[in-house]
Each structure stands twice: as C-alpha cells, then as structure tokens.
Design a protein around this nucleic acid. Structure first.
Lengths: 221, 221
DNA sequence: GGCAATACCAAGCGCTTGCTACATTTCCGG
DNA sequence: CCGGAAATGTAGCAAGCGCTTGGTATTGCC
C-alpha cells in the first residue's frame, strides 16, 4: 500500500538528468551535492505546506526514494529545516553587516538594507516562507534558539540606523524606531507570500517601489 | 496512558466559576455559550501552535474534557477553525463596507480602513494569527473557499479607493495600486505577531503611527 | 417521577507519523 | 574485477492522530 504510492511517485526528479546516476564514495564534493538537492526539495515542500504538515514520506517521494533512505543523509526532519534556515540566516547577516560597514549616511544605509532584504526574496523564497509561517513553532525549540538571537542582532542594526537618521535630521523625530523597524521588516518579508519570480516586477523593482513609499509616503506632496 | 494525561490536564478552566455545572437543555442561549467558549480556547491554541500542530486532545485538555467529548459540539477539527475564521471575516467585511459607504474622500477612506483593520487586532488576535499562519493550508480546501473570495472583495475596495485617490490628485500617481494595497494589508495584519494588548501602544496608537508613515513617509520634509 | 435533551467519559479503531535495523544495490579506486 | 564505502530498499515499531461508538451522569420540563 505504502509501497504502491511510493513507487508511483518515483523518479520524478531522478529522470531530470543532473548527472543523476549513483556513485560511490568518490568526489566528496559531489556527494554533498546530492544532500543539497534533497534540502532544496524539502524546502519547497516546507514552504508549500508548512513544516509540520510535510511528512518525511512527502520529501522522499519527491526525491524518488523511500522515507527510510532519507535518514542516510539526515539525522532527523528537524535537521533538514535547520540546514535551510541556518543557511539563509548566515547569508543575510553577512549581507546586512556589509551594508552597515560601508558607513554611509543613515538614509542610504536603510535603503541598502531594504535592497538586501528584497534581494533575498528570490534565491531564498522557500526559506523565508518557512521562517514566516513556522516561526512560532520553531522558535520554541532550543535547537532553533539562533533564530531569536539573530533577529535581535538584526533589530539592533536597523534601530540604531534609524535613530542615527533621526539624530541627523534625516528622518522624522516623531517615529518610534523599534516600531518603524518592525513595520519595514514585516512588509519586506511578507511579500514572499505573493511574490513570484516570473512576475511583471522583479525583486529589485519591488524594492524601489517600497523605498519610494517608505521614504516619502503615498501622499502627493 | 492517554487517560492519565487527560486527567492530569483536567478542570483547568472548569474550576474558574463561569456557572460551570452541567445543565440540561434549558437556557439555549447559554448552551451555545459553552460552544463559543470552546471555540475561543481552540483559537488561542491554533494561534499559538498552528492549526495542524494543535491536536483535538490539546483542545480538550485545555477545556478539561476528553477529546471525544469535543465531537458533541463540533463535527470536526476543521469546523472549529471554520467558526473562528468565518466569524472574523463576517465582522471585518461589515466594518469595511461601513467605511466605504460613508463616501468620504479617498484619503479619509483609506485612513478609515486602516483604523478598522488595526481595530480588529485586539478582539480578533487569535483569528488573525490563524489566518496569517495557516492561510496557505486552509485556502486549498473547498470548505474555506470563502477566504479567497472575501479577500478578492476586500482587495477591490482598497484598490478602487487608491485609484480614486490618484485620480483626484491626492496620492502619488507613480504607485501601483495593487502593490500598494498588498503592502498596507500585510503590514497591518503582520503586526499581530508582536502586538500584545497590554503593551505601551494600543491598537489605535499603532494605527496612527502607521498612518503617519504610510501617508508621509519616514523622511523629514 | 419519568422523559428527553445535553454534556460528558471510556475505550478503542484505523491510519499516519518520524524513525530504526538490517539487507541490498551501485559504483569507484586499486 | 574485487573490496568497501555510499546510497537506497525492505519492513516495521511505537506513538500519536482525528474521530466513532456506546454508555452514563446531570439537568429542566411536563
């Protein structure tokens, strides 16, 4: 019964070339390539149906293997989503720091951060979706403590930049920096829900649209 | 085993007065009161852990009954979340229409819609959280087709108002109305993640802060 | 006091879940 | 062409899932 469904879903991805045939131990770099492929498959499913609603059998089916075989590559289902999220966080933290380290004026820095964030929308669509939808569930586990930790660090970057901008007379003084940061952050990430790479507007176009509204509002001055 | 855990979690809420003792058929208004109480309990759990991660045993535990007893009040777990969401949507659609029907200028109408949305944040916190986190999962079921339907209607209200504002020269003409609507909508709803009723800023204060940024931007003019 | 309705318990069914233990196949370096 | 690591298959376990069935208190009404 289970075997039937597994076999029917088989070789969906295997068929698509990719140098697909099995190999032994040789070429250790390529061995982890298979692993990364599985992570990407899982990420898509997690994003589509949610982490908890996605079963290891779903993932295995998509990869054209049986669920048990997944555990040759991963310790657990959690370790898969861990790899997805930690990868994303590592990259975006680095990009954020690079923008900060340019040491430009607060307005340009904020614009840079916004562009970076929108820039991750396409390459990390699945990871961001998982982060958005399953944050509450994941943040409760010690394993994912780094989520809250990283978020705190990011918040400090934004808030201090916003405050510097207020001090320099660039931004309105009657805004709560923390509140403003949250508004910006949420607006950027939440776009992942309706953003589709092939649409009329690409991620950078979206960023520019948002920067206009954020800096000057929707009013005609 | 299951019995043990169920009993240990018992009477958590029952103890808190509420005229708790069982009653026969009399007072039909109060009978549905019990039901509504269960719905609220479930809503809190759904919001906290997600719809799928919340088990019927969780809900029953919180109510101080056994999981099977829930099915005296509800057809299924789905029908519970249905009641939560349909209630919320009915109310907000009504409020939205009331604002539109006031027939004020686009700027005031947009402001009114924003205030309505923020106003639901407190009374419908759980429902909005569920809508945000489990939208993808729920929208796929025919039972919840009204979610997408209502969203379409809401989008039309906002977009047409934004377009009218552009036509009257109130809003900047170089904005995509649909995109702008989505930004506003998401920014409002996503606030439910960090908004806590007891905080320094209440929902209306939040609305005013957001209106400032949205209309005039964060730049100092 | 009996009746019907309500609200619940007790028990468990059929199925799915994440994961495991062991066997088998594939493939490359020597 | 063979030894061995890597990758997958086979089979299934224990736990948990949503939900059902049948029985039992408790209550208001006639």
């Amino acid at each position: 019964m289970t075997t039937t469904s597994a076999k029917s879903g088989r070789s969906r991805t295997r068929a698509a070339g990719e140098g697909g045939s099995r190999r032994g131990r040789g070429s250790p770099a390529l061995a982890s390539e298979r692993r990364e492929h599985l992570v990407r498959l899982a990420a898509e499913l997690f994003a589509e149906k949610g982490f908890q609603a996605t079963t290891v059998r779903n993932i295995a089916d998509e990869a054209g293997i049986l669920s048990g075989s997944l555990y040759h590559h991963f310790d657990s289902k959690e370790s898969i989503v861990d790899e997805i999220l930690s990868g994303f966080f590592t990259e975006i933290m680095e990009s954020y720091r690079a923008v900060i380290d340019e040491g430009r004026n607060p307005r340009d820095t904020i614009a840079g951060l916004v562009r970076v964030a929108f820039g991750t929308l396409e390459p990390h669509r699945a990871a961001i979706t998982v982060m958005q939808n399953d944050w509450n569930y994941l943040k409760g586990m010690e394993r994912f403590a780094y989520l809250t930790k990283s978020e705190d660090e990011v918040e400090k970057m934004w808030v201090s930049t916003l405050q510097a901008g207020q001090a320099e007379g660039l931004f309105r003084p009657d805004l709560d920096p923390k509140l403003t940061y949250r508004m910006i952050r949420d607006t950027v990430w939440v776009a992942v829900r309706w953003f589709r790479p092939g649409g009329q507007l690409d991620a950078q176009g979206l960023a520019e649209h948002y920067l206009k509204v954020m800096f000057d509002g929707i009013n005609l001055h």
